[in-house]
Design a binder for these strands. Structure first.
Lengths: 186, 186
DNA sequence: TCGTTATAGACAACAAGTTGAATAGGTGCC
DNA sequence: GGCACCTATTCAACTTGTTGTCTATAACGA
């Protein structure tokens, strides 16, 4: 139940409906997990059946009713239990890397385009993370924030996402370098 | 068909049986994809049905026969086609990050242990990658290798894995720092 | 000789994730 | 006035990935 734990962790930041949760997963939660809205709804049902959270229907004018979910005590306990379990290191699985691996000299332009694309995406992500970071720090220094904040988890995972994208940028730059060097060879 | 492409790419390094392939996935291929042997056997059957590779049975003395798979021309073409398709950036999905996100002060020791564990694992992985790199370079400088080598893909993905683990190490170190700072607060 | 590790696979059940579509009112823009 | 996007959720079908069990043989060391 990997997604489930991510959902429970996300709800630590406050109650939310499925839709709100999917928005949360699009931005801040994307640092540590990703999921489509369909997955989320399915998982919310499942977690509710297991008593780890409970939803109440909120009626709305002019738009469909929504179900807002809250963590139960059992849900919090479950999260604590999860933290104690060993976690396997995540394996890398990346289309772009498969493409680079398969590079045999004939499809240089296509590979180059794919890498440039990813580089672009990573830069955008990084900018978003910097923004989120500024919002979170709200003028304070990192040290001050880390000392005083109630929950440091969200900041640390954000730093994780930031470093991740940074590394992608480095790698892409290197790959482009190599590809361009080889252009002059042939 | 994401796994399929990884298998095809792995076979670019030479023909292999299911078992050999699973070994390959454990070491060098793990830089860009991961899969269990069960997944591999299933995928090999599928790829053969689609004509992207073909297997021939090799009889062995004293042990079960093995099927050795070779890329077909259709398989190579398919790989080239794949390279031209846009690839979505991989989403992060990591148990450890979920745990850190969920950190609420009460389970400091468990989180710490999980991070130390991961740090350890990353260091080991990094050492392995350095070894693979040395083997690949075989005394040559990186520049020389990149200029002369037939296929630079494997080296570049290896560098990807290397940078990835390096970044993990940085992040883990930072998290431990923060956790230990907070110890002195409470 | 017994247990362990490595080789080489097959099969089944289940969990997780993706893709595509449907519903239905609301807001903003040209 | 129409079109596109936003809110909010659900359903169905499918592909991927995980976990566990099973059958064999061979080499190695205690």
């Amino acid at each position: 139940m990997a997604l489930g734990h991510a959902v429970l962790a996300a709800l630590l930041e406050g109650d939310a409906s499925g839709y709100q949760l999917s928005k949360r997963f699009d931005v801040s939660v994307s640092n540590f997990w990703s999921a489509t809205s369909q997955q989320l709804y399915r998982e919310l049902d499942r977690l509710e059946r297991h008593g780890l959270l409970h939803g109440r229907v909120v009626e709305q004018r002019g738009r469909p009713n929504k179900r807002v979910f809250t963590l139960t005590t059992a849900g919090r306990d479950h999260l604590h239990g999860f933290i104690e379990q060993p976690s396997r290191p995540t394996a890398i699985r990346d289309d772009l890397l498969v493409k680079v691996q398969a590079f045999d000299g004939t499809d240089r332009d296509a590979i180059r385009a794919a890498v440039v694309d990813r580089l672009d995406h990573a830069r955008r992500k990084l900018a978003l993370y910097e923004q989120l970071r500024d919002d979170l720090l709200d003028g304070r220094s990192e040290d001050t924030y880390l000392r005083d904040a109630d929950r440091v988890g969200p900041y640390l995972t954000l730093m994780g996402g930031r470093m991740f994208e940074h590394q992608i940028i480095q790698w892409c730059t290197k790959v482009l370098d190599v590809l361009d060097q080889r252009l002059h060879r042939t």
